[in-house]
Computed example of a mutant assay.
Amino acid sequence: MYALADYIKTELINGVEYDMSPANIQHIRIQRRLTMIIGNFLQGKKCEVFAEAEVRLSPIDHLIPDLCIVCEPSQVKDSHIEGAPDFVVEVLSPSTRRKDITVKKDTYERFGVKEYWIINPKEECIEVYRLNEQGCYYLDNLYQNFTPDEWERLTDEQKAEQNLSLKISLYDELEIQVKDIFEM
């Protein structure tokens, strides 16, 4: 109980403060796995991955995404990221779900984050949003993790429609297996 009393993390979105609760273990595992996969791939490359770094989009918009990629080194300051990352991931939690899929998504879109992933641990699915030429997000694809039993119940046609791996638009050669994100 004492650790929670000392836990103070706040986001500022459009001038409104939002307190953040500590993440649950499933959330932390997903975040860690994805950070490791992407971080290993980015070794020696220009872009860098950050977990829970403060991102200052404007004086009234300071967010803390679960994970982000920044490809412009000048944006990386000692205490925060200055400006929009190229890529952002939010892992849904019961306490942040509504904010992540509405307010934060709209804010990332408004500031030009090129790609936004919403990971739902409970449903084991990932929504991938990308910016179009007009600067608006569109749902590029939905990725689902399947248990062996769920997979066996699908028809051959349904199996053919599934995408079991996904790529970050920044790097076509980085292919991530959906199951690797949710693997326990």
Rank of each mutant, 00 (worst) to 15 (best):
H80R: 13
V103Y: 00
E48W: 08
S93R: 04
E109W: 01
P73C: 15
L67F: 07
R98C: 02
I64L: 06
P73W: 14
F41T: 07
I38W: 01
A84W: 01
I101A: 01
D66A: 06
V76I: 15
V76C: 11
Q43I: 13
V76A: 13
K99I: 08
H80D: 14
I69A: 09
V49F: 08
T107Q: 05
E109C: 06
L63Q: 03
R97D: 11
I81S: 06
I64C: 04
L57I: 09
V91Q: 05
A53K: 06
P85V: 11
S93Y: 06
P65G: 15
E54R: 12
V91H: 03
I101L: 07
F111T: 04
F50R: 10
K77W: 11
L92W: 03
V113H: 02
S58N: 02
T102A: 12
I38P: 00
V49C: 13
R56A: 10
F50P: 02
K105E: 08
V113M: 05
V113F: 02
D78K: 14
T96E: 06
H62W: 12
H80Y: 13
K46S: 15
P59I: 12
K105I: 06
S58V: 04
V103L: 13
R56Y: 07
L67R: 02
H62A: 08
I101W: 00
K45W: 05
I60G: 01
E54T: 15
G112M: 09
I81A: 08
N40P: 00
V88C: 02
K46A: 13
D78W: 09
A51E: 14
L92E: 07
S58E: 08
Y108R: 05
H62M: 06
A53D: 09
L57R: 01
T107Y: 03
T102R: 08
G44T: 09
T102N: 12
V88Q: 00
T102D: 14
D61R: 01
I81G: 00
D66Q: 06
D100A: 03
P59E: 14
